[in-house]
Simulated scan of single mutants.
Amino acid sequence: MSKTIKTLVAASLLGAASLAHAAWPDRAVQWVIPYPAGGGSDVIGRVVASSLEKQLGQTIVVENKPGAATIIGATYIQNAKPDGYVVGTADSGTLAFNPSLYASLQYDPDQFTYIGGLARFPLMLAVNESSPFKTVQDVIAAARENPDKLTSASAGAGSPHHLALEMFKQRADVKITHVPYKGAAPALQDLLGGQVSIGFVDSAAGAANIKAGKLRVLAVATPERLATLPDVPTMAEAGVQNFTAYAWQGLVGPADLPAQVVDKLGADLQTALKAPEVDEKIRAMGVEPMPMSASDFKAYAQAQQKEWAEVIKKADIKLD
């Protein structure tokens, strides 16, 4: 073998070795969750991350960066180096609500790399066990008879629970007073205690009290009845049309993530969500897995942004 050929072969082997070494991931991946530890979004992220670790062959380090309606975490993700080693959870607030709620943001929803869907929390209209309201039509009749007298709790201004209320008011043509709380827990507590008339609750936060009979669900804001609440009508069945509302979330990264990262992580994410042990853990929380491809998740988020922008504009909600 000539010296020239030997040199070329050596160079080829060295290049192949370099490519193999550079194959993603070759070290730990950071998963940013824009909520405090222990909440529903945190638990889902950690459950899925644990499954993904096995497929990626690398550790996934979950880091919570809560605050400012997910803006802190979202900004961190978007400003990260686009090498696939920083990704994170982005939800309906991050991608669909905030662009209309805030005059300016530190991040741009269009500048994320969308990787795939994660999960969605069905929203439902509920009252406490002693409430005189037995149906959605009871609520509508009372609201029309005494505009703004009924009160509705939410996890905070601009939360999915708040915006579901605004959509309900618009679709049902009623006036109800919004009462924002600092989180789902205190809102739920006052709904149970009768300090507020009604409330939109998410399936995860309300599950235990619904099962215990302390909350009565009047309707679910989903296209079809929930398997866990087969006797509860959908909003459409209850007489309120064009009303679907979820709190949902997916996985994103900074702009310009390499295609190999998006393809592998997106495929592995869908596989993880469909794994029986992951599916069971998520559904046990009252949440639905939402496996989606990168392109499907981006299209879904953009459609949601457009729909909720109309609701927010009509309700004239601004948070800055």
Results as ranks from 00 to 15, higher is better:
255 A>L: 12
268 D>I: 03
262 V>Y: 06
256 D>S: 14
258 P>A: 06
260 Q>S: 10
251 L>N: 08
274 K>H: 03
253 G>I: 08
250 G>D: 13
275 A>P: 07
274 K>S: 09
249 Q>H: 15
256 D>Y: 06
257 L>Q: 11
268 D>S: 00
265 L>N: 06
260 Q>N: 12
259 A>F: 03
260 Q>Y: 04
261 V>M: 07
253 G>L: 01
266 G>E: 03
247 A>V: 14
258 P>C: 11
261 V>A: 07
249 Q>F: 13
263 D>V: 12
262 V>T: 14
267 A>C: 05
259 A>M: 05
263 D>K: 11
259 A>H: 04
244 T>L: 15
270 Q>G: 06
276 P>G: 13
252 V>I: 13
264 K>L: 05
254 P>E: 12
274 K>F: 06
252 V>D: 10
257 L>S: 12
249 Q>P: 08
280 E>T: 05
264 K>N: 07
268 D>G: 04
245 A>F: 15
265 L>C: 11
269 L>D: 09
274 K>C: 04
266 G>V: 01
244 T>R: 14
264 K>T: 13
275 A>G: 11
268 D>Q: 00
256 D>A: 10
254 P>F: 08
269 L>C: 00
249 Q>K: 13
276 P>A: 14
278 V>T: 07
264 K>I: 12
270 Q>R: 03
265 L>V: 05
255 A>T: 11
267 A>E: 02
267 A>V: 05
273 L>I: 02
274 K>W: 04
259 A>T: 08
262 V>F: 09
251 L>F: 09
248 W>A: 13
270 Q>H: 00
256 D>E: 10
245 A>I: 13
250 G>I: 05
262 V>L: 01
270 Q>I: 01
244 T>N: 15
251 L>C: 10
272 A>K: 09
259 A>Q: 06
252 V>W: 12
255 A>N: 11
249 Q>W: 14
261 V>H: 04
255 A>D: 12
278 V>W: 04
266 G>P: 06
271 T>F: 02
256 D>Q: 15
247 A>I: 14
272 A>E: 10
257 L>N: 09
253 G>Y: 02
263 D>M: 03
265 L>R: 02
